[in-house]
Write a protein that binds this DNA or RNA. Sequence first.
DNA 1: CGCAAGATTATT
DNA 2: ATAATCTTGCGA
Length: 174
Amino acid sequence: MAERDALACEHFARPAIDVALDLIGRTLDVRDAETVRSAVIVETEAYGGVEDLASHAAFRPGGRAAIMRETPGLIYVYAAYGMYPCLNIVTNPEGEPSAVLIRGILPLEASKSIDGPGRSARWLGVTLDDQGQSICGDRFWVSTSRVPLPVERTRRIGITRGVDTEWRYVARLE
DNA sequence: CGCAAGATTATT
DNA sequence: ATAATCTTGCGA
């Protein structure tokens, strides 16, 4: 079998804000029993750090979000409003609980981008059971290659606290 | 044990 | 604008 074009887990052992920007333009692959879904990451948000009140690690540190304290490169999945699984990648700088939320993707076989964390995770086939999986494993991996895209930096969406920090990145698509 | 809030989405 | 739907945290 050919070498897989995958980033090593150590790549995510950096501040979430750095990883969030770095991920824009990279391809995310998710292997299913039958197929492999591939999509370019076009929108991300960084969460974490002791000062980030919007982070689950700050106001909901127990339960699933505890994984944000674990090894970088692990998958954190939470159900937004109890209904929609959302995909995160744990990115631990120095024991600081943090993660990057995948908010938008551009499926390779599609022409239209998918907007929103719930819709993105659903297209990729991500479920709550993927909690704890590795982003550099058999089911999930991210390409070493990166499509150069114009990136915009904005405030995060859908939150009521920590609204001042500009920790969201969006690729500007033609 | 009960209740309110929340990193959302589809429908009215 | 608002319902759908459930985990987590907090107060009684």
